[in-house]
Amino acid sequence: MARNSHFRFKQFTVRQDQCAMKVCTDACVLGAWADVEDADRILDIGAGTGLLSLMVAQRNSYAMIDAVEIDAEAFYQAGENVEQSPFHDRIKLFHSAVQEFTSDHLYDVIVTNPPFFQSDLLSPIDKKNMAHHAKSLDFVELLAAIERLLQPEGKFNILFPVDEGNQFREKAENAGWTLTRKLTLFHQEDKKAFRALMTFQRSEIAHNVKVEEDMRIYEQDGTTYDPDFKALLKEFYLKF
């Protein structure tokens, strides 16, 4: 996906020149895949450009969405993206670290594409470190924030590289969460999986059925989009 100054979707445009984290395919998959049905209040942790909030607002036509972003430039750009979208009256942005964020209500659903590289070498560019690495938000802090902000019967949707996803899943399960949905994302069939998308609920209310699926972005030729990928993103991507 070209990293232009903006990315146009069918119902909104995401401007991204001030954000370390650009629009990327895996985040779009999360926005289209996350379980947000029947949610009245949704929280987006680490809003970045506002992409997830905008996608979720398109999919759930009545939910009120709060979005938290720590980086000032990303916060202001997300604000511009939201204000110029059809969903501006349902999305509210907060310039805050989620560890310090407080709300008068709990959320039915949380979506997050968190800083996920727990141990990789840091970039000399601090904004990229904050966006890509768990420098400002580690697994324990993230789980504590989710525990504090989510309704008892609520669920959260999260995106990680595969290895970090396995680490996070272990910590989440040790903290009393159960994995109820998982999507493993591949570039194409003969490539190694590169992302894991997961939905968790508290163990005491989670159903016994766990749904695990694989998805490929491309068919074997590496250029033709996989039909399942096209079906998932057809309401968002102009080319579909």
Rank of each mutant, 00 (worst) to 15 (best):
residue 3 R to A: 08
residue 3 R to T: 09
residue 3 R to M: 06
residue 10 K to F: 06
residue 18 Q to D: 12
residue 21 M to H: 07
residue 28 C to Q: 00
residue 29 V to I: 13
residue 32 A to C: 09
residue 33 W to P: 03
residue 36 V to E: 02
residue 39 A to T: 05
residue 41 R to C: 02
residue 42 I to S: 02
residue 48 G to S: 02
residue 50 G to I: 01
residue 53 S to C: 00
residue 54 L to M: 02
residue 56 V to M: 00
residue 56 V to F: 01
residue 67 A to E: 00
residue 72 A to I: 11
residue 78 A to N: 06
residue 80 E to N: 11
residue 81 N to R: 02
residue 86 P to A: 06
residue 91 I to V: 03
residue 102 T to Q: 13
residue 105 H to Q: 01
residue 114 P to D: 10
residue 115 P to S: 10
residue 117 F to I: 11
residue 119 S to Q: 13
residue 123 S to N: 11
residue 124 P to N: 07
residue 135 K to F: 07
residue 136 S to F: 09
residue 146 I to M: 02
residue 147 E to K: 10
residue 149 L to T: 02
residue 156 F to P: 00
residue 159 L to Q: 08
residue 163 D to A: 15
residue 166 N to F: 15
residue 170 E to W: 13
residue 170 E to R: 14
residue 173 E to R: 14
residue 174 N to I: 14
residue 175 A to R: 08
residue 175 A to K: 10
residue 178 T to H: 15
residue 180 T to N: 09
residue 185 L to F: 12
residue 186 F to R: 08
residue 190 D to V: 14
residue 192 K to C: 13
residue 195 R to S: 11
residue 198 M to D: 07
residue 202 R to N: 06
residue 204 E to S: 11
residue 207 H to F: 13
residue 210 K to Y: 13
residue 211 V to N: 15
residue 223 T to F: 14
residue 225 Y to M: 10
residue 228 D to L: 14
residue 230 K to W: 08
residue 235 E to Q: 11
residue 238 L to Q: 10
